[in-house]
């Protein structure tokens, strides 16, 4: 029993044992190797309809994104471009992440309303929108790991220690550090800073456009 054993180990005997039903309810994260995936399946065709009903308002009928809402498809081969387009297809290394996130966090505003099979179908459709599977594809817990994610090898583990720290941990220059200094860019050129409620509202359309050029991004 918890108390006796726990206190014996220098524990405080606080909390209570989590019940299996409770763990099942909350422990729903999906791992890259498929750990956590429930038994189930869903087709691209079903996914297309479900996506249209539940997701397209924000992410577009083809998962291409609407206005400022995230795009989920496209962008292949753009990661080294001046303006990379990062989507499930172009960027995400693991399919598990898509299943996990759609299942837990989407649709935005009605999270956790999809059944497991619906999530399989929607994820199948996102894959299809990214030209990663055919239109007759059915995604299931069994073929899940067969799907190849294009950017699976696109990540390295934080290498700042070698690539940066080594060269920046030096005694800093205190005088005559450069020959000359020129201003090369000014914030007033873009003029996208909110000033007050009124000006921010009137300038909105123009602002989004210009800002896009300067890559605003918050995550």
């Amino acid at each position: 029993v918890l108390t006796t054993e726990a206190l014996a180990n220098g524990k405080l005997g606080l909390g209570r044992e989590a019940l299996p039903e409770e763990i099942a309810a909350w422990d729903v994260d999906i791992r890259p190797d498929g750990q956590g995936l429930p038994v189930g399946s869903g087709s691209v065709a079903d996914g297309e309809m479900l996506f249209s009903d539940n997701c397209a308002a924000c992410h577009g009928e083809f998962a291409e994104g609407v206005d400022n809402w995230p795009e989920l498809a496209g962008g292949e081969g753009t990661l080294a471009d001046e303006d990379p387009v990062k989507t499930v297809g172009s960027y995400w290394p693991y399919l598990s992440t898509a299943w996990d996130y759609v299942h837990r966090s989407m649709p935005y505003g009605s999270a956790q309303t999809l059944t497991d099979d619906e999530v399989y179908a929607i994820v199948a459709y996102i894959l299809y929108s990214n030209f990663l599977v055919e239109d007759d594809f059915v995604l299931s817990n069994e073929n899940f790991l067969d799907v190849e994610m294009p950017n699976a090898d696109g990540f390295i583990i934080d290498d700042r220690a070698e690539a940066e720290y080594a060269q920046w941990r030096t005694e800093p220059c205190m005088s005559d550090c450069k020959d000359s200094v020129e201003i090369t860019m000014r914030a007033s050129v873009l003029n996208v800073t909110p000033e007050d409620e009124a000006s921010a509202d009137t300038g909105e359309a123009e602002v989004v456009q210009v800002a896009a050029a300067a890559e605003p991004a918050v995550d």
Partner: peptide, 18 residues
């Protein structure tokens, strides 16, 4: 006691219900 509290038998709806 903390031990008694730990032996709750029914799942907590605050966890099992969304």
């Amino acid at each position: 006691t903390a031990g008694a509290a730990a032996r709750a038998g029914t799942p907590d709806p605050l966890i099992t219900e969304i």
